[in-house]
Structures are given as structure tokens and as C-alpha cells.
């Protein structure tokens, strides 16, 4: 994901701002990392350049 995506995404649970922690990035994009809600503390993974912003209960269902 491009860092500019931060301007349009929020926590799906409470719509609060997310904080970005970058584990891996190239010149253009964040490839791996974590998005953390500044309000409820829920975390959302970024893997292979794609943030998974499903609420936690749906995330587990979708992985099955």
C-alpha cells in the first residue's frame, strides 16, 4: 500500500485514526507492517502490500 492510503482509511470498528508501523517497504509502497487503532488498540496486518482491514471476527472467518 502507498502511504497516501492512510488519508482514506480508518479503524472499521470505531472509525478512529490508524497508526502505521512499517516492517518492510520499497521506494513506492509499504509491503509489510501493522496498522493500530489509536482509539481501541485493535491491530490490522499489512501483508504483501495489502492491508487487511476486516474486523477481527470477520478476518478469522475469511481465513477459513
Amino acid at each position: 500500500m502507498k502511504e497516501s492510503l492512510m488519508d482514506v482509511i480508518c479503524c472499521p470498528l470505531d472509525k478512529a485514526t490508524l497508526e502505521l508501523d512499517v516492517d518492510d517497504a520499497d521506494d513506492e509502497e509499504v509491503l509489510a507492517g501493522t496498522l493500530t487503532c489509536t482509539e481501541c488498540g485493535e491491530t490490522y496486518p499489512i501483508e504483501d502490500g495489502i492491508p487487511n482491514l476486516l474486523p477481527p471476527d470477520m478476518r478469522e472467518e475469511a481465513a477459513a
Partner: peptide, 8 residues
Amino acid sequence: VVADLLSP
């Protein structure tokens, strides 16, 4: 982005 409709 992986998301449920417009939620995030």
C-alpha cells in the same frame, strides 16, 4: 485493501 464494504 481487504475490507467489508465501506467499514474501514
